[in-house]
Amino acid sequence: MISLSKRESDRNKPQQNDDNHHVSMCQKGDVNAFQVLVERYQKKMLNMAYRMTGDYEEACEITQEAFLSAFKAIRKFRGEASFATWLTRITLNQARNQLKKTRYISHHEGVPIDAPVDTKANQVYDSPASQEETALEQLERKELQSEVQKCIDTLPDEFREVLVLRDIQEFSYDEIRDILGVPEGTIKSRLFRAREAMKNCLKRVVGDIR
């Protein structure tokens, strides 16, 4: 069972203050202060973009664009939400736009007959394996991760967003409400359905998931 106290929102107050300090320096024209924020959030934003698109290159592109948009709009940031929430919203919008673009291209141009099959899902960017793990175990783990990503990719966008924000990025319901701008009931409903869909998908592709 997931405990709410585990969520980042409960433990990142000091970081929020530090973010706001750097944001105000950026607003005064200090570009180096923005670099601190880039270094702090690039990994988080890249992971979210990757889980949304399932493509590493696209995720890098989305993250870059998101930071650039954030810098351009930094003077409009008034601190009503945390910087992390604000940046996540920007990144998520970039990801949505990228997904629309990709779908439009694949719908209108089609897939080349000699194209490698499902290249996106085969990309697994993993953390280094532990030394105790055997080669077979590593293979199985990567296989599982690939299948999980495939299942995430099959979810409708609004379900995927909630699943990524809550179960992977570990945002609180309040933060998700701020990011998506939808009521908490809607978020929970989407999340339960997304989890149910993931369970069924994993059972289908992996078999016994226990």
Partner: peptide
């Protein structure tokens, strides 16, 4: 619960080494 554990257990991907420089160059 197992499905959620699997999702939560997905590893974090690492940004490329040039990533900060590339973003800051654009900024």
């Amino acid at each position: 619960e197992k499905a959620i554990a699997i999702i939560e257990g997905l590893p974090e991907i690492e940004p490329p080494p040039w990533f900060t420089q590339k973003i800051m160059a654009q900024v």
